[in-house]
Deep mutational scan, measured.
Amino acid sequence: SAVVMEEGSPGEVPVLVEPPGLEDVEAALGMDRRTDAYSRSSSVSSQEEKSLHAEELVGRGIPIERVVSSEGGRPSVDLSFQPSQPLSKSSSSPELQTLQDILGDPGDKADVGRLSPEVKARSQSGTLDGESAAWSASGEDSRGQPEGPLPSSSPRSPSGLRPRGYTISDSAPSRRGKRVERDALKSRATASNAEKVPGINPSFVFLQLYHSPFFGDESNKPILLPNESQSFERSVQLLDQIPSYDTHKIAVLYVGEGQSNSELAILSNEHGSYRYTEFLTGLGRLIELKDCQPDKVYLGGLDVCGEDGQFTYCWHDDIMQAVFHIATLMPTKDVDKHRCDKKRHLGNDFVSIVYNDSGEDFKLGTIKGQFNFVHVIVTPLDYECNLVSLQCRKDMEGLVDTSVAKIVSDRNLPFVARQMALHANMASQVHHSRSNPTDIYPSKWIARLRHIKRLRQRICEEAAYSNPSLPLVHPPSHSKAPAQTPAEPTPGYEVGQRKRLISSVEDFTEFV
């Protein structure tokens, strides 16, 4: 048969007729292969192709491409040299491709048809291009793949890379869960390890502090508590009631339409708007009261037996805890006409967050109470924005700035309102402590230090009264110190430094 060459192609190359033996071998191979691939376009007849790359030819070592076609129900084999250009295909004639002069020997084609199974398996396991790669995943090629499931790999992101949580363990979102698992493993320790309690022994800490320079003076030496005195035992138990972190309780009120001037209507609300609910979820963490331990979680007086509701929101960081007394989460009882059960919590909070959804101005004093010092007013606006402002009593104007209003988005509203309420509550605590000038409020841990110092002074006084020969370590507060001759004046800087060093040991009130 003659071949018409394309323009620009090399000279004529004689194409030899395939021997009958080659056709029989390739026909047997075509019957084993699956003929249901995917359909081509209507211009080209339905056909199945599979590209198999052999590394070497037997005796020649030339890479070839073998295409199996099922045109007219008769499979045909096409061998081509890759750099050459194939002729145009037609549905009426068999596929013809040019070969190099080196394939002119018909014996070479017979060798190609009689490829060993080793070469076929190696060509099938190679990388296939384009559409033949999808075909190689079918059941027909499963014989050339190794048996057994593939090893499982770690989760992959859409980009093909490992997620960040699997790369950096410290930033993994499941870090707290692993800590819980470690605690569970520790709890399952053997009885021999049960006595080993991690941490620092208080006796060891005391020993280090006792021999430090801070205890060089007799006034700073630790003293032993009497065991037989019940009054001192009660004082030590009272110390446990003062937490070592700051605590805040903040009221949250929802004002519906037409309720801006009605205290009873505001306290009777059992739910609010959708934006109000989203605002609550951002204030803190939802907790169930019956599962809380009052000595570990500050509840601000809420009952854990269901008297004040089942849930509330709280927030904490390293040095403070805040609980929100939310009116809509507290039960509304029919027998309580004046809502006294709610007001006994909300009316005693220094700061209230008022979500004013009424469309009218909310005035300070609508919720009557002796300790309502500051109101954080949240007014929802259009386009997911809110107006946040402050209202306070006249005696609080020096501590709280009420002249600045803020426009905040719904997303950042819980954070801004919480921070403003916490700052206002700190100012309210300082303002409330002014009624007792001898006990200015600095912080909870300073209050613990003052309680310890008062307890020490009482013990020293009782020891001096029981044994008059012992001198008083600290003179009583009601006694007057003996007159001392004025010492020589020293520079102001040295006096300030000495006073600062003494105050650092005794108390921190002056620095606050």
Rank of each mutant, 00 (worst) to 15 (best):
L238A: 15
I287P: 10
N261E: 09
E228R: 05
D240W: 04
E461L: 10
F324T: 02
I367C: 08
C460Q: 12
I446E: 13
Q237C: 08
A417N: 00
D318Q: 13
S260D: 04
S268F: 03
E263N: 03
A487F: 12
P475T: 14
A322N: 03
D334L: 09
R344C: 06
N261V: 04
Q484R: 13
E288L: 07
T277G: 11
A405E: 12
D334Y: 10
V495D: 15
T281A: 12
K394P: 15
D318A: 09
Y313R: 09
H478T: 15
Q429V: 07
A427K: 03
G282I: 01
W315S: 04
C340R: 15
H431A: 11
E360C: 09
E510K: 08
F371T: 09
L302G: 15
Y441A: 12
P471M: 08
A405M: 14
L364V: 15
L286V: 10
V495R: 14
V374Y: 04
C460T: 14
D336A: 10
N227S: 12
F373L: 15
F350Q: 03
A447E: 15
A421I: 01
S409L: 02
F279G: 00
G309D: 08
S435N: 14
N467S: 13
Y274A: 11
V400S: 03
L302W: 15
P380H: 00
P222E: 12
R285P: 05
L302I: 12
P331E: 05
D334C: 13
H325R: 04
K221T: 15
H248P: 04
E263C: 02
S219G: 14
E307V: 07
P491K: 08
Q259G: 02
R456S: 14
M420K: 02
Q321V: 14
D401K: 04
D334I: 14
L346H: 05
P482R: 13
T509G: 14
N220V: 15
N386H: 11
R411E: 12
I326Y: 02
T438I: 07
P442W: 03
N425C: 09
P331Q: 06
H432D: 05
G300Q: 12
V505L: 14
T247W: 03
L413K: 01
C314L: 13
N348C: 15
H478N: 15
I287E: 09
Y245T: 06
K249R: 10
D349G: 14
S433P: 04
A251C: 05
A322T: 14
T281G: 13
S244Y: 15
V252N: 00
T277H: 12
L267W: 05
S229Y: 08
V378A: 03
V351G: 00
D410S: 01
N348H: 15
K363L: 09
S219F: 06
C385E: 10
G496V: 08
S389L: 05
R411Y: 06
L413M: 05
C385F: 10
W445E: 15
I353Q: 00
S433N: 07
T402R: 07
S260I: 08
L286F: 06
D395P: 05
K296D: 15
A424S: 06
L225Q: 13
C460S: 11
G492R: 08
T312M: 10
G306D: 10
L381K: 03
C292T: 09
Q321D: 10
N348W: 05
T379M: 05
N227K: 08
E397D: 04
R448M: 09
K249I: 06
H474V: 14
M396Q: 03
F350D: 02
D303P: 08
P475G: 15
G398W: 09
Y274H: 07
S428V: 15
E270N: 07
L399D: 06
T485C: 12
V236T: 10
S389W: 05
P222C: 09
A463T: 14
Q370T: 15
V400N: 03
G365Q: 10
V388A: 01
H432T: 07
D395G: 08
P437D: 13
I266R: 03
E228I: 08
H271S: 08
F371V: 07
E488D: 12
C314Q: 12
I242K: 08
H316T: 15
D349V: 08
I407V: 09
V252K: 00
I377E: 04
K394W: 12
H474M: 11
Q241V: 05
K406H: 07
D336C: 10
T379P: 00
R344M: 07
L390Q: 05
Y493L: 12
L224T: 13
G369T: 05
S409A: 03
S235M: 15
E494D: 11
G347N: 15
K337D: 15
Q241A: 11
R234V: 06
R411V: 09
R448F: 06
S219R: 09
A481R: 10
R411Q: 12
S229K: 07
L280D: 01
P486V: 13
L289A: 14
V388F: 00
D357I: 00
Q230E: 12
F232D: 09
